[in-house]
Amino acid sequence: MTDVPATRIVAVVVTFNRLALLQRLVSRLLEVGGLAEILVVDNASTDGTAEWLAAQAAPVSTLSLPDNRGGAGGFDVGVRAAYDGGADLIWLMDDDGIPEPDCLKILLDHDEYDFWGPAVLAEQDPSRLCFPIRLPGRAAVVHRMSEVELAARDGVIADVVIPFNGVLVTRELVGRIGTPRAEFFIWGDDVEYLWRARKAGARTGTVVAARFLHPATDDLGTPMAFGRTTYNHSPSDLKHYCMARNNLVNLRDYRGWPAALAFVAKTVWFYAFTRPDPGRLLMSAKAMYAGVRGDFTGHRKYLRG
């Protein structure tokens, strides 16, 4: 009788100057078990992360980058390394999230998918989603976990997933679609990877019993247009520049120019009427024009040394 080889699962974690959060996450991943490797991609941190990682033993391993390439660059390198190292499944996450101890086990019970993940909950209030989602067949987004649980079928919300927050991706899918777009730096790289996977026919879903906690961020989803919609506003110039550039590129490439131009109009409305800010309007225009031209270098002016 031929033995069936064990599934090689590699967790890929991207970090930058958040040592305490990274330590918490690595400790949890060691507790989770079942991982052949915990691969930490360090984006040239300067807070002692490199020294701490150097002292860790297997299954923790490190890829230290010479400069900060953002989440997109880190996941590009990490996914490639995991794939080249023979991973059958790659478990993707940033350093500030944390899976519940049984998260991976529950996800593995649904291995009929190609790109699937847990419910991502606000760490400050786990009854709420960290990132609101639009359920299949509904126009409005939902914010409460109870609504997600009620909508699930066989414990899964099909065709909905929050990428790079505890998602599993199969080796076969990576072989077909490649790695995340490194040039995006931050923001939109996760959405682009998910949309690319769907375009390739990947089966996606959220397993509602699997839980992943993430800090609620900024004031994303700011109401606008008399409360009829929301806008992903961030006080960070770096985040906003990347969001405006990368979101326009994603919409153009996957939804077409009408969707991209609707995003332009939404941005103009938000910074002209909802939160008037001529400086942000100008930044948005420059970022979007750069994206259309294929220039992914403009965010560098907003990086801190």
Rank of each mutant, 00 (worst) to 15 (best):
R252E: 09
R245D: 06
S234K: 10
L238R: 07
D219G: 11
W195F: 00
Y193E: 03
T217Q: 15
P235N: 15
R203V: 09
A200L: 08
R198C: 02
F226C: 14
T206I: 01
L248G: 02
L251Y: 01
G221I: 06
T229H: 13
R255W: 00
L248D: 06
P215I: 06
H214Q: 03
P258Y: 00
L213R: 11
H240T: 09
S236M: 03
G256R: 04
S236T: 07
N250D: 05
A197N: 00
A244H: 02
T204S: 09
A216P: 05
T222H: 10
Y254T: 00
L251I: 01
D237T: 06
A216E: 14
H233V: 09
L194D: 05
D219V: 15
S236D: 12
M243L: 14
R245T: 07
Y241D: 13
N247R: 15
S236C: 08
N246Q: 04
S236E: 06
F226T: 11
Y193R: 09
T222P: 06
P258R: 05
A200Q: 08
A210K: 03
P215T: 03
F212S: 12
V208Q: 04
Y193G: 03
V207E: 08
L238E: 06
S236K: 07
R196W: 06
D253C: 09
L220A: 05
P223F: 01
V208K: 03
C242I: 10
N247W: 14
M243H: 13
D219R: 15
F212R: 10
Y241H: 15
C242N: 07
S236I: 08
S234P: 04
N246V: 03
N246G: 03
P215E: 06
M224L: 10
R203A: 15
Y241Q: 11
H233K: 10
L238D: 11
T217Y: 12
C242S: 06
A216I: 10
N247V: 15
A197S: 00
P258F: 01
L220H: 05
V207Q: 10
F212D: 14
D237E: 14
R203W: 09
Y193C: 00
F226Y: 14
R211C: 03
F212E: 09
T217N: 13
R196E: 00
R196L: 04
R203K: 15
A197Q: 01
R245V: 08
R228V: 09
L248C: 10
M224E: 13
N250G: 01
E192V: 03
M243V: 11
A225Q: 15
V208H: 00
A225K: 15
N250M: 01
V249S: 02
G205R: 07
L248H: 14
R203N: 07
L248Q: 07
A259L: 13
Y193A: 02
D253W: 00
T204Y: 02
E192I: 05
T230C: 08
L194N: 05
C242M: 05
G221P: 02
Y193M: 03
A244G: 01
P235Y: 12
A216V: 11
T217D: 15
Y231S: 00
T204C: 12
R228N: 11
T206C: 08
F226G: 14
Y193P: 02
P258C: 04
L220K: 07
R196P: 03
M224D: 01
W195K: 01
A209S: 15
G201P: 05
V208Y: 04
